[in-house]
Computed example of a mutant assay.
Amino acid sequence: MADAAFWDRIARKYAARPISNMDAYEYTLGRTKSYLRETDRVLELGCGSASTALLLAPGVGHITATDISPEMVQIGREKAQAEGVENIDNIVAGVGDPALGDNYDAVLALNLLHLTDNPKQAIDECYRMVAPGGLFISKTPCLEGLFGLLRLPGAVMHALGKWPKVQFISQRRLDEMMTAAGFEIIESGNDAGKSPPSRYIVARKPIH
């Protein structure tokens, strides 16, 4: 929750900013929708201003959209009210918050894991929150290779309050953390031609 103040400060500007790669966003949105059912109970972690959650809401039973930033959550509430979307709750919470409960049909973490303090622990928490047979759907920028040169300046910018904390995760390590948590990866892929690669993973929690 340490970066909440950073996201609060930029929330209104962030919410007004157009999506940089609409084709990639719509493709990810379409793939995600294809896995969700109209009866599903869904949790989105790190929802920002809830733009994606609001687009998914008509196709699911209920969606809980969470973010560590109270200002982002407030924007999401305003948008839900303006659009008349009633099957969504926008709440302030981070990954692993006990108030979120568990047994969700699907947990989403879209562009979030690289912003958590401990991605492995976050994935383990998501495994706990997913119902047996349920899905964990994530998309994560994998800042590897030359992007590793940003570690030091990124740390300095974070210390100055200009950047959120960023984790540098390789695609291979991300897949390993998913399987180590107990998930079975059923779909994975990267945005075509995007640098750094942004890895989309759909993983299922086995029914034991």
Rank of each mutant, 00 (worst) to 15 (best):
V95R: 02
Q171R: 15
V60C: 13
W163R: 12
T179Q: 12
W163K: 05
S138Y: 01
F147Q: 04
D102E: 15
Y104L: 06
I169K: 08
S69G: 05
L135R: 04
G76N: 02
T179R: 11
P98T: 03
K139G: 10
T116E: 01
G61V: 10
P141I: 02
F147K: 00
E86K: 12
A122H: 06
P132W: 07
T116Q: 01
F168G: 08
G161H: 01
P119L: 01
L149I: 08
R151N: 09
I75N: 06
G148A: 12
D105I: 00
L56R: 02
L100Q: 07
P58Y: 05
A109G: 15
P119C: 07
R128V: 11
A122F: 04
L146Q: 12
A131R: 14
T179F: 03
G96V: 10
T66H: 02
S69N: 08
P153H: 09
N111T: 11
P119F: 05
R173Y: 07
E78D: 13
V73R: 07
Q121E: 15
E176Q: 15
L135F: 01
K162L: 14
G145A: 11
A181G: 10
A106Q: 02
L113C: 08
G61C: 10
E83D: 11
P164F: 04
V107I: 02
I91L: 14
E78N: 07
N103R: 13
T140M: 09
I63R: 06
E83S: 14
Q74P: 07
T179M: 07
L160H: 06
N90L: 15
K139C: 10
A99K: 15
P119N: 06
D117Q: 12
V60G: 01
M177Q: 15
G59A: 14
